[in-house]
Nucleic acid binder design. Structure first.
Lengths: 337, 337
DNA sequence: TGCCCTCTTGGTAACGTTACCGAACGCGCC
DNA sequence: GGCGCGTTCGGTAACGTTACCAAGAGGGCA
């Protein structure tokens, strides 16, 4: 196994100095075309690739052209779409993306962030988990840019891209109420997650505005997977006074719930998903645009990396309620029924 | 904005030499507890993080604890599952993952691979695109390990993890034929992609074995998105002699096709997807296990990184045909109908 | 007391690159 | 011819870390 060639090897091969090789490799001006050709020939012959590790070390206050992206779980389609969008933007800026999953574990998030900063990322996009993010303080102070996406990090004064979770869920629940439902179930992930908390608040606000007492028996928090959500639905519906409508707080929960949901129960899910329109009945959803969210977050990050020092801002992206049928199933109090 | 502290700063703060700081930071033995405590205090006070860029430079023949993962498109749920599995394995080995998408573009693949090697990754997992991969030769010779996943790279002698694409599709098409279909449509991505070619060959083999002439009018290649697949289905079904059954070569095509597919056309898709069982009719699929595939590929890669020098091998993971209904719709030649 | 051995500690030289400076060369002009 | 200038090139010193070696302190033993 050949050892990796260095500029010195290339220089020797081409009969020039290392500085000339450096200039050619980086496309710097001031090299005679004939010399450059000789160097490029040597580069090809030896299979030389510039070593960015050494390069970054020397160019201390330059950029590493690397950003980090930490999401809850890469396999989650919503997060995957954000990741893909972020990667596209990074590419436009000549950067690559380090990826990591927190799996909703603060210790793991810490480790991922540490691994990122140790690799001198220019900045990172995070979907923060529950807990204190004070450990990010020193990282930020040392110049690493941070943008939060999907979830806000309370106590951390950074750019944030979120959607109008509270309004969206409140409006959706109001819609269910208007369609004649009073016993509306709520299925959500861990309530401590910012997004989840906002959505739950929206649910409660809609009930309160309609003068409906919130029944804790209709609420299930902490659902982390499809099967957990399915079990929760089965249990809710087996209760003495089952709900006539359900709201699912995210797409994982929604898909899990739909696997066992009878077609006569009204249903609205947060996040759109493929084939929602082909279900029986077609599924009404609160749609957000993960590509737009990821793109916006990445643009904010690169603006910071490139010197934007304006005060941190929070961008609220819109959601759209897409009525397809499942959310329009009338409830027992529907007018005219 | 404070500049990033170095070991020298910590050493000055703690009143020790840099070597002592290095030892403490790396948990090396041979430092008196009292001294170590003083250093750790200084580390905390200054918010010091080890600079792995400099570390890697010095430890030239050591590992960078970074691997690359290049897939066609991160947002593709199949690829996202592989990415997630690979990240989990990487984490077990204390490594982080650089991610990149080729988007089926050889030039882009080259750039991503170059960006990976420039960052001295220990190895990479690739889903190679169409084209020659000779440019990987020098990278491999210089010690970067490569594992191909999902698709083989013809002409590249590396570990590869694939599924039995040919057999799986041939068996699925045989099943459609046994159910009375003779005009069976095929919807696929670019035929030049290894996986796609294998699946198409399986389709042709099943037809030939049954003595059915392959009708090119029933075959659509090069479908890169859901909408393209939907259009293709609409066109195929509008033809004078439309197919009575369809086989979709991957999940993106399948989901696109299902958006417009009438319920009386038999259908089998490659790759399982959420809620396939809840469609009307429930969708028969050839399922592969992306988590197992990604995990296997990552394990192979780390085995190589840790010194495995046995000859490259190809691991063929199993697929499972899951009959749910859509693939069992009888055709015009069904017995007893 | 002198010697050796262990424990702890620090100095120095790399790793591969680039920033900074200076040198060599050719050319035009006084 | 001498001088200045632009072009092309190379030497040297960093970047922050670790490998290697060496040195001082302290203790045990002859």
């Amino acid at each position: 196994m050949a050892t990796r060639p260095t500029m010195k090897d290339v220089a020797a091969e081409a009969g020039v100095g290392v500085m000339t090789v450096s200039r050619v490799v980086n496309g710097d001006p001031g090299v005679a075309p004939a010399t450059a050709a000789r160097v490029e020939e040597a580069v090809r012959k030896l299979g030389y690739h510039r070593d960015d590790v050494a390069r970054q070390l020397r160019r201390t206050n330059q950029l590493s052209q690397t950003i980090g992206l930490m999401v809850d779980h890469v396999a989650d389609p919503f997060m995957a779409a954000i990741a893909s969008a972020a990667e596209d933007v990074a590419r436009q800026h000549g950067s690559v993306v380090l990826i990591g999953s927190s799996r909703d574990d603060l210790r793991r998030e810490r480790e991922v962030v540490a691994a990122f900063t140790a690799r001198r990322v220019d900045g990172m996009v995070l979907t923060p988990v529950v807990g204190s993010h004070r450990f990010l303080r020193s990282t930020i102070e040392q110049g690493t840019k941070v943008v939060c996406v999907d979830r806000a990090a309370p106590g951390l004064d950074v750019d944030t891209v979120v959607v109008d979770n509270f309004d969206a869920v409140r409006d959706a629940v109001q819609r269910l109420i208007a369609n004649g439902h009073r016993r509306i179930g709520y299925l959500g992930d861990r309530q401590e997650i910012w997004t989840v908390g906002e959505r739950h608040r929206g649910y409660l606000a809609a009930l309160e505005a309609a003068g409906i007492d919130a029944d804790p028996a209709l609420v299930r928090h902490g659902l982390r997977s499809g099967p957990e959500a399915a079990t929760a639905v089965t249990e809710l519906l087996a209760a003495p006074e089952p709900p006539t409508a359900l709201l699912a707080g995210n797409v994982v929960v929604a898909i899990g719930a739909l696997a066992v949901l009878p077609p006569d129960i009204a249903f609205i899910g947060f996040d759109d998903f493929a084939l929602a329109a082909r279900m029986t009945p077609p599924v009404t959803v609160i749609a957000q645009d993960p590509v737009a969210i990821g793109t916006t977050a990445a643009h904010l990050l690169f603006a910071r990396i490139h010197g934007d020092t304006s005060p941190p801002r929070t961008v609220v992206m819109p959601t759209t309620l897409i009525p397809r049928g499942s959310g329009e199933i009338p409830g027992p109090y529907a007018q005219g029924s």
